[in-house]
Each structure stands twice: as C-alpha cells, then as structure tokens.
Design a protein around this nucleic acid. Structure first.
Lengths: 183, 183
DNA sequence: CCCTCCATGTAAGAGGTTACATGATTAT
DNA sequence: ATAATCATGTAACCTCTTACATGGAGGG
C-alpha cells in the first residue's frame, strides 16, 4: 500500500488533518505494517484532493495554526474499496540490525552484545507503548493486527534474549574468523 | 543497507557475478532482512566498479552467456568495514497482507479466510525451503539470522492458524460494521 | 531557556521498481 | 512444447526520504 491508499484508509476511520493522519499511522496497530513520513503524507493528500478522492476544509483554531481537515468523497471510498480487492503483494522487510548480525562474525564481540541489548530495550519500549493503548483497539481487524504485533515483539525479544549467549559462545569457539574489523 | 552495501557483503563471502549475487541474496538467511532485484544489483555493481570498490573479469563459458565475476578490492573491503560500524537504522516492515487484515472488517468473511489460508501456505513453503538449505548455514552470525527467520515463520504461521477462527467469530459477533465492500 | 507539540508544506535528490531487450540450454 | 535457468544490462518512472522553511504555545 502506497501513501495515498494509507491516507484513504486512515480517513475511512474518520475525518482528519495531515498531522492527525500521521499520528494515527504512527500508533499501533497501524504502525505494525507501514512507516510513512510527513514528506509522503502531505503530497499524497494534495494529489488525492486533485483527483477528487478527498475534500479538505481549512479550520481556524484558537492559539494553533490552521488545520485542513479532510474527508473521503464517494469516489475516494470507491477507490479504497478497489484497493482492498487487489491481491496483496509480498511483505517487505528491511533490517540493518539483522544485516549487522548476519555480518557479526566480522565484528567485535562487545559490539554484538551491545547491539542485541539495545534492540531488546527497543522491543521493551514498544511493548510498553502497546500496553498503554491496548484498550482503544476494538474492531476485530484492528485487534487481529494489534495482537500480531504483540506476538512479534514478544517473540523477537525472547529470541534475542535466549540466543545472545549462544551466539557469543559459538563465535568464541569458531575463533577469530575472517575478521574485517579489528577488536 | 542499500544495494551497494549488500553487494559488498555478498562479495565478502566469495567472488561472484551479478546473477550469482542475486541468487545468494534470495536465499536464507540473506533473504530474511532484504529483498533486492536485478534492477538494483546491476547498477550497484557498475557504480561500485567505477568507484574502485570491486573489480570484474569477464569469463567465457561453454554453452552459457559470458559472466562477469566480481571481487572486492582493498578499498571495497574498507568500505564494507566502515558500513558495518554505522549504527543500524530502524527496521522497516511493509505488508499489504496485514494492511488488508487491518481493514478486514470491510471485507467479506470468505475473502478474509482465504487470505489467511494462502498466507499460511506461503509460510509453509518458506519453512520447507529453509529446511532444505539448513545444513549449508555454518557461520555463527548466519546461523543466528537463519534461526531468527525460522522463529519468525513458525511463530507467524502459528499465530494465523490459532487466531483465524477467533477473528471470524468476532466479526460475526460485531455484525456487519461499516462494510465498504458488499458481501 | 530549551524542548516538544502543534501544523503545513516544498524542493532536490537518492534510490528503487518495472518493463524492455536478447537469447541459448535444460528439464518437464 | 513450455517453462525455468542461466546471464546482463538499460531507461523511464515513480516514490520516498531528507532537508529546508516557518512559527506560536506550553511544559520542565
């Protein structure tokens, strides 16, 4: 799903400004399957408005910049429906972290240990953030994706915690293989 | 990691042609954290050669098109080392599948069921492919990422199998909510 | 005083995807 | 026959990402 479809989906849950859409997309469970920045959202909204798929109204606010609140048009709703009927493309996952772990036989042991510890801490933060907003997730589809996220973060956290020592021991046993980076 | 860094990493495991690099990148555990096509690899190799980070030699082959086998230069190895020292950026995960499940309250029940079943079948295929090449994964870092992938596919498969019925029942209990797509 | 939140956008550039172009060999 | 594998590349396009630009309000 491109930025335009994501904006349509966000607006199908209720009228919102670009800023509010960004916040929605950053929260679980929306943030479990995409990561979209302002630089994609604002141009997407401009194009959607040009195509007549959404309509925006400027709203003055007390002590705040004006905001432009968008809502889906009938055409926009139809476009979203059409997008939902397409067969899903493959998932794409890109991870610098796992790339580094893949290459970790060329890295100093303490760096590897610190990378894993930092990642465990990140997962813990994410799990705390999820606990804080769990009550707001009510629709069955949203809940399904939310629980998928929970499962993912918990499983990955456990994997890292359980295999950290084993990795460090295997490295030691294998000896200093083709070390690219000096220790 | 961009396509250039991935090519350097692949070549650090042994000399290879563009076609062979693509095959390596498509196999577990390399395919667990990236997804890079020919359209990225060939231009990346051209630019790396221009920068003197790799060197290529054309090799004639019997009954096959010529292939250009690349190897890392000292400068290329240094560049890879430098890349490995950068702090990792955030993971990025994009999934049409989970987007559809997120929106699944607007989809017919049988479509949802079929989407989940198809995905379970995909995970099964991936797990079979992994079993077939498990023996080749020997380096500790490679093994760590391989087992991460195993854990991921198994966990996700189990999640889908375990929660399929619950999702369908909750949808039924909630009634036909703001159905975008007619059943 | 500084940071974060609110709020919207543009511009340039990097990077990647898709389709095109070609063609022999081998397995089903 | 037909599909897959081997093998390399280009060109156009599209999409993001990043940085810039602006600025008040409120909390620590």
């Amino acid at each position: 799903m491109d930025a335009k479809t994501l904006c349509l989906a966000a607006l199908s849950l209720g009228d919102a400004s670009g800023y509010e859409i960004k916040k929605t997309l950053d929260e679980p469970p929306f943030n479990h399957f995409q990561d979209t920045g302002f630089g994609s959202i604002y141009p997407a909204l401009t194009r959607l408005a040009e195509e007549g798929l959404i309509e925006g109204t400027a709203q003055a606010q007390a002590k705040r910049p004006d905001k432009k609140v968008f809502r889906l048009t009938a055409a926009g709703r139809a476009r979203l429906e059409a997008a939902l009927q397409d067969p899903p493309g493959p998932d794409r996952f890109r991870s610098d972290f796992f790339f580094l772990l893949f290459m970790s036989d060329s890295l100093p042991a303490d760096r590897v240990a610190r990378l894993i510890d930092a990642r465990i801490a990140e997962y813990d933060r994410e799990l705390e953030a999820m606990a804080a907003c769990e009550a707001e997730v009510t629709l069955p589809g949203h809940r399904f994706v939310f629980d998928f996220g929970l499962t993912y973060y918990r499983t990955m956290r456990a994997y890292l915690a359980d295999n950290r020592e084993r990795l460090l021991q295997r490295r030691a046993a294998a000896g200093p293989a083709g070390t690219l980076v000096a220790e």
